[in-house]
Each structure stands twice: as structure tokens, then as C-alpha cells.
Design a protein around this nucleic acid. Structure first.
Lengths: 157, 157
DNA sequence: GGCGTTATACTCGGATACCACGTGTCCGAGTACCCCCGG
DNA sequence: CCGGGGGTACTCGGACACGTGGTATCCGAGTATAACGCC
């Protein structure tokens, strides 16, 4: 079980955007250079965040990405599931109804116990990520980090 | 983020083994036929469980697999991590120390906040799965299921 | 009839191909800005 | 000096190859069993 490698990218990008003044846009190229990662692939992931309503994109000169809402209204879960897809890691193919030991259909009115258990665990994971917002992350950073982020990402002019 | 498809296989196999009398062994072929799945690939996964100390294997005629410990001492987490590998889904490559916006090393004495958040969520997931044992699963099954399992998996002779 | 030996058949374990999804890259469509020209 | 129009350069968005890890399969090593022959 593993998340896409780009999860770290988008989390850091979202955190960086949360440190900027409202309405400030940052382009893919800026973010890629800021973190030392491949720009085209990053663009693909940021587009995914736009599609899920986490970011807002602006085209043209001085365009780029910005948070779609206030940092306090965007949970880590939203960012992670936007890039990952948000599908349940455990999928039940109802093998209890297959093969020689298949249960009768009337014994399967209740969902499989294992699905319930795995689902509870996944929901615990989601709940844990839902409890933290981008604002919380920014709050817990060393004070000099937001200062540097603003200095480096706010475009001259 | 997704678990191997075989996770469902091994969970059901472990549950089935937990329904049998102590010491009773079941071969790969029996389990494969019981659930209607591919035998060779299932064997590979069961070997994985043996390597992680969840099952015990016996070779030769009337051999096969059985639980390594009592059902009440084997958690769902053990089974899942045995087949999945148990690695953290989120891996931190420390991109905060890379690129133009790299933080100074002395600002990185504390681990990245995002790692902590993601780690907490993963631990919540693990804790949820650790709380349930195979005995709990068997307990919650309809009464006729263990009866049928024993009837079908205990070998004649 | 009892015991030792041998042959057998059944079991697991590791090594070997195949395929899908994540990874990485590119080029085209669209738009806000800026400059230039005319009034 | 002011307003409008066109060009330009910058931006995002979708379409196109590549590689790694999960999926699927096979065959060989090892062992408890069972039969058989001998004592």
C-alpha cells in the first residue's frame, strides 16, 4: 500500500501557497524550481487539484495557481485524495460467494465482516487527515519559513 | 492507494483456518478450490504469511497450512501487513531541503510536519486493524458458516 | 504377525514471464498583458 | 493626451511513451505416508 510519490509534492506546494497573501498566484515553473522537481509532471498533478476544487488556476501572464478557499477550510485529506483518487484501498470481490465453499445468497444479506473491518480502518485514516488543515500546518512551521517562502515566490513587479 | 488484490484472499483463508480444530492443516489446492481462485498464486501469498509468522506450513501428504498461533492472538493487521509489506504509504524525500527554496539544515532538526501528520493517520489505520483478531471475525459470522467450512475443508480419512 | 526398507505421491518454495498503473515528457489551446497607432 | 486594436509571451490542459511493481504461472526440492517384503 503506497501513495503516489507526488503526494509529497502537492502537499508541500499547497503548504507553500497557504503561506502567501490572498489572491497571489504562483506558476508551475516557480513551484518546480522552488522544490527542485520536474515541472511538466508537477503541472499534471496541480491540474488534478484544480479538478477536485482544491486549487484555482489562472492562465495568461502573471497567472498560475492559488488556493480555492482559505487555508483553514482545506484539509490535508482533500489534498491527498485529490492526487491519489480517494478509492478505498480494500476492495471486496465477494469471494465468499464463489468456489466450492460459496455461502448461500441469503447468508450474505449482511456485508462481509472483513469489509466492515477494513472500512473502519480506512475511515479512521481519513478522519485523522480530515482533522488537520493547511492553516494548522503553516501555524506549526518555524517562523522564518513563511518569510522565506514569500520572499522567493512573490514575483517582482 | 490500494492494497494488493490478494489481501482479500489471505484474509478469507486465515478466517477459514481459524474456524478449524487446532492442528488441522489445509493445502493450497483445497483453499483455492474453496474460494474459486488461482492455486499457484495463492500459494505464493500463503508462503508470505509463513515468512511473517502468521501461518505454519507442513510438507508431504496430509500437509498444508495452519495458523501459527491461536486465532485470538492474530490480528487483522498482521495478516494485511504480511501480504502488503507493511511499509508506510507516505515516504518523505525531504524536498524541503531541495531546490531554490531549500530550508537551511538547522531549520530541519525537527521532522517535517507533513510526515508527522501522515504518520499519525497511518498509525490510526494500523491501530484500528490491530484491535480486531481472527477470533473476533469468526465470532461475528453466521453460525452455519463455520459448520460448512469444517465440513468442506476437513479431509476425509 | 511385526518391523525395516523402499517407493510413491503429495506438499511447499523459489525462479521465471506478462501486464497494468504510476511516472515522466511533450506540444497545442487560451488569455491577460503590453505596445503601438490613430484620433 | 487618451482610447482602441493587435501582437506577443506566458499560462494551463490534454495527449503520448517508458519503467517498475503487482499479477499469474511453472517446475524442482523435500518429506510423511503407505505399501511391500523379510524376519
Amino acid at each position: 500500500m503506497k501513495l503516489p510519490e507526488t503526494t509529497e509534492w502537492v502537499l508541500h506546494c499547497a503548504t507553500a501557497l497557504a503561506q502567501l497573501p490572498d489572491g497571489q498566484t504562483v506558476s508551475t515553473g516557480q513551484l518546480a524550481e522552488h522544490f527542485g522537481i520536474a515541472a511538466p509532471y508537477l503541472a499534471k498533478q496541480l491540474a488534478q487539484l484544480v479538478r477536485h476544487g482544491v486549487l484555482t488556476a489562472t492562465t495568461g501572464p502573471r497567472g498560475g495557481f492559488r488556493l480555492a478557499r482559505a487555508p483553514g477550510d482545506i484539509s490535508i485529506l482533500e489534498v491527498v485524495e485529490a492526487v491519489d483518487g480517494g478509492t478505498d484501498p480494500y476492495i471486496c470481490r465477494e469471494i465468499r460467494q464463489q468456489g466450492r465453499g460459496a455461502s448461500t445468497p441469503d447468508a450474505c444479506t449482511e456485508p462481509c465482516q472483513l469489509v466492515i473491518i477494513m472500512g473502519r480502518a480506512h475511515e479512521a485514516w481519513r478522519e485523522s487527515l480530515r482533522a488537520t488543515t493547511l492553516a494548522d500546518v503553516v501555524e506549526s512551521l518555524p517562523p522564518e519559513v513563511p518569510f522565506n517562502t514569500r520572499r522567493l515566490l512573490i514575483r517582482p513587479g
